[in-house]
Every structure is written in structure tokens, then in C-alpha cells.
Amino acid sequence: MNLHIIHAIRNKQRMQFVYNGKLRHIEPQCYGLGTKNTELLRAYQLSGGTQPEPLFDVSKIEDLKLLNEFFTKPGPNYKKGDSAMKTIFCEL
């Protein structure tokens, strides 16, 4: 379990990291375990990819940084209880 991700969700703090070789700038929405027991992060993506609210495999995240930037509301398609996760550690 990544405590930095939990902290960022609870504080509505933006994050950045490298994923598949691209720098991503995101607002974390939901963090938990998927059906294959992989840690997953649902995020609203501000830059770095084409999907607005992708699901990231946490094991593939590199150079994770919490930014001194904050957000006030979830992404436009956010739903509590993300169906891609069988166990949720933290969510907005």
C-alpha cells in the first residue's frame, strides 16, 4: 500500500509520475486492489496521456511526486466505489 497516494487523495493533492515513459500530471481519485490483486490508481489526468480518467497499475509508476497543487472536486466522470476495484484503500 502506498501511503503517498492515500495522503494525496485525502488532501486532494495533485501528483506527477512517469508511466509508460510519459510524464503524467494527475488528480488522484481512487486507490485499491483490482480483481487480479494488483494495486490500481484511478485518476483524472491533466496531462501526459489521451484518456481523461485512466486506471494506472501502481507497480508501473515511477518517480512519484506529490505537488504543491490542490484540487477541489473529482473529475467529471468520477463515481464512488470504482467497479474496477475489489478492495478500495482510499477514495474521494
Rank of each mutant, 00 (worst) to 15 (best):
N2E: 12
L3W: 14
L3S: 15
L3P: 07
H4F: 14
H4V: 14
I5P: 00
I6N: 11
I6P: 04
H7A: 10
A8G: 02
I9H: 00
I9T: 01
I9A: 01
R10N: 15
R10C: 12
R10F: 13
N11G: 08
N11F: 02
Q13F: 01
R14H: 05
M15K: 00
Q16T: 15
Q16F: 13
F17S: 02
V18H: 05
Y19W: 04
Y19P: 02
Y19G: 03
Y19M: 04
Y19A: 02
Y19E: 00
N20D: 14
N20S: 13
G21Y: 04
G21M: 04
K22G: 08
K22L: 12
L23P: 11
R24N: 06
R24P: 01
H25Y: 12
I26M: 06
E27V: 06
E27H: 10
E27Y: 05
P28S: 11
P28E: 09
P28N: 12
P28H: 05
P28W: 03
Q29T: 06
Q29H: 07
Q29S: 09
Y31A: 03
Y31V: 02
Y31I: 02
Y31E: 04
Y31M: 04
G32K: 01
G32Q: 03
L33M: 14
G34M: 09
T35A: 15
T35F: 15
N37S: 12
N37T: 12
T38D: 14
E39K: 07
E39M: 12
E39N: 11
L40A: 04
L41A: 10
L41N: 05
L41W: 03
L41F: 08
R42C: 02
R42Y: 03
R42T: 03
A43G: 13
Q45R: 13
Q45G: 10
L46F: 10
L46P: 07
S47P: 02
S47N: 11
G48S: 07
G49F: 04
T50E: 15
T50C: 15
Q51S: 14
P54A: 11
P54W: 08
F56L: 00
F56N: 00
D57E: 13
V58H: 01
S59T: 07
K60S: 08
K60T: 10
K60H: 09
I61R: 07
E62Q: 14
E62C: 11
K65W: 06
K65V: 08
L66S: 09
L67K: 07
L67G: 09
E69V: 09
E69P: 12
F70W: 15
F70M: 14
F71T: 02
F71H: 07
K73R: 15
K73G: 06
P74F: 02
G75S: 03
G75L: 00
G75E: 01
P76F: 05
Y78W: 13
Y78D: 06
K79V: 08
K80G: 12
G81S: 08
G81Q: 06
G81F: 06
S83V: 11
A84N: 09
K86A: 06
T87E: 09
T87D: 08
I88Y: 01
I88W: 01
I88S: 00
I88Q: 00
I88M: 03
C90E: 11
C90T: 11
E91W: 03
L92C: 07
